[in-house]
Design a protein around this nucleic acid. Structure first.
Lengths: 342, 342
DNA sequence: TGTTCTGCTGCAATCGTTTGCGTTAAGTAG
DNA sequence: CTACTTAACGCAAACGATTGCAGCAGAACA
């Protein structure tokens, strides 16, 4: 194991002081040196295969050029595109990312945020926040640049990049309405996530605007954004006896769970019951009956949040939008049809 | 921004030397101190919210407790489960992971391996290696603990954790054969990946064992493991005129591409042409005609590779299996049927 | 009582970079 | 020819933690 060359090694090889080598290798400081010294040092450094030690530099400068990305679960297909969006802006700038999965567990989240801080991340992109979380707010307030994505912590002062949930729910509810649906149930996302609650509120408000009478028991509360909860809620809904003709799900995975239950019970979707989703996760267009859903801009949401984080890392006091809302788009596919004639 | 407390701060608060604090906080060294001093220091540290600075510790000890994970592309659905498998063993041990996407581009891979080394990772799990890659071999030889997963660098001395590709291909080819298929085409994976070449060799060998005559033009060479290449190769295959009755694809995404072309041309799968995949990626069982494929143990492959890496990081000279092959399993679904009668 | 041992803690160097400040020599002006 | 500016570089102190070694006390022993 040959030891990696350090500034000192280069200094020794070139006969100058390490501080001179340091300056020669820094684009902004090399101007104070004479051109030929810079050139010589760079050549030797190159030839020795010098790579700066970010640990040492970070210790001194308090900038590690690494950021932390907190997500609920990387196996959830909507997060990888977000990460690539983040990476697309951060990597060219020289940042690396430490990615952690919180599994939406508060204790894990708190543990992991410390894992990130111990490693001196320059900032955190948080795609897994709960609707309120004092510890995270405290970390941000103590000076760690942070932006939340997809979700937000309500009036926390932490910049958030979100999708236009209200508009998305409104569009898709209107779409169902226009097909003639009046008895529309909603499988809501978890209460402790801003997306869960936000979409539910949007559902209630939009329903009122449309003059729909939605009884309380037609709104089911899921505990997680996954297929199992989709199944549970759908079954409960069907067993409830309300003559629903459509189910508006708070996300695609809940809708996939709904598909399963309907299929198992021999209920045709969309002929008998229409189903809609939210997010438009990958491969959805290959799974029948192709789910009509709302497309969120996953990659872009990552990009925008990274852009903001970069600004914040450059200047923690920078003025950035406290909330950036990206437009969504209705993806019309096959899971919605007119309600059956009765 | 309140500065994070350091050992020095605790030392000041407790009236002892920083070295004493350091020892008190280290489980292995605290035994040399008197119990009450340890207790007092721990209490004060706890109360001040002390978190060790891994940068500083890493600079001194050359261990950062972070590892690098190199994958081709996180949006490829088979990698997230692998990452979770890796995380399941590394995180409890206190390791964090820096994840990078190489996009299977050599130049990016080389760049990113330096990104990891600059940050002083204690080891690298490499799920994106090309079949041969001198630079990576050099990095490993210079002492960076490394294990490759899913793929391998042939006789490089780098421990590899792979799936039993040979057995998988043999099983699925036999499965097709037993249905009566004799004209079986193969869409092979990229030549520069060990999985691509390995599965192709396994196909050729297994075909010979079964006494199948497979003409050279029935083996199409894809350039990437994706749907677009699956489409291209399938189209070329169909246009080639060979009366094939089945297509054995080197992975699921190629098979999904094949599905598309068959559907577009009005060819029924499996009635007219059977198709098989490899990997069993998530959601595959929801996409019709449900693909018959080979399941690899994604999570486990991650676990095992992390286990090995841990051993290597503890002792770079540790004796570890140079190649660990995990068993695969045939997933029988709906995309295979007997060849049409002619 | 003097000596040795042992248990506990302090000292200081070290890891590799960065950076404010001081020093030197060359260059310019008077 | 002296004085003073400026360019170019060296010095050394940080950053926060670890760790070999030294020192000091008290205990045990002769």
């Amino acid at each position: 194991m040959r030891k990696a060359p350090t500034l000192k090694d280069i200094a020794l090889a070139t006969g100058v002081h390490v501080s001179t080598v340091s300056r020669a290798l820094s684009p902004s400081l090399r101007t104070v040196l004479s051109d030929d010294v810079v050139k010589h040092i760079c050549e030797v450094a190159e030839q020795m295969g010098y790579r700066p030690n970010r640990l040492a530099a970070g210790l001194r400068t308090r900038r590690t050029m690494t950021v932390g990305l907190m997500i609920p679960d990387i196996t959830n297909a909507i997060f990888p595109p977000i990460l690539r969006g983040v990476e697309s802006v951060l990597e060219p700038l020289g940042y690396a990312s430490i990615i952690v999965n919180t599994d939406s567990i508060l204790a894990r989240e708190h543990l992991l945020v410390d894992v990130l801080r111990e490693r001196g991340v320059d900032g955190i992109i948080h795609a897994a926040v709960l609707r309120n979380d004092p510890k995270i707010v405290k970390v941000a307030a103590e000076g760690t640049p942070m932006v939340t994505v997809n979700r937000k912590i309500e009036n926390s002062g932490i910049p958030a990049v979100v999708n236009d949930d209200v508009q998305g729910i409104r569009m898709i509810l209107k779409y169902l309405y226009d097909f003639g649906h009046r008895n529309i149930a909603h499988i809501a996302g978890p209460e402790d996530l801003s997306t869960g609650r936000g979409r539910k509120n949007a559902f209630v408000d939009s329903a009122r605007e449309l003059g729909l009478e939605i009884p309380g028991h037609a709104i089911l509360q899921s505990l997680r954004f996954d297929e199992a909860e989709g199944r549970r809620c759908t079954a409960a809904l069907l067993d409830g006896g309300w003559p629903l003709t459509a189910i508006l799900c708070a996300n695609d995975r809940l809708a996939l769970g709904a598909f399963e239950v309907l299929r198992a019970r021999g209920i045709d979707c969309p002929a008998q019951i229409s189903v809609t989703g939210f997010n438009d996760m990958p491969f959805l267009d290959l799974i029948p009956p192709r789910l009509t859903t709302v497309r969120i801009q996953q990659f872009e949401v990552g990009q925008v949040s990274a852009d903001i984080l970069v600004k914040l890392m450059a200047d923690p006091a920078a003025e950035v939008a406290s909330e950036t809302t990206l437009p969504v788009k209705l993806m019309v596919r096959d899971s919605v049809a007119p309600p059956p004639y009765r």
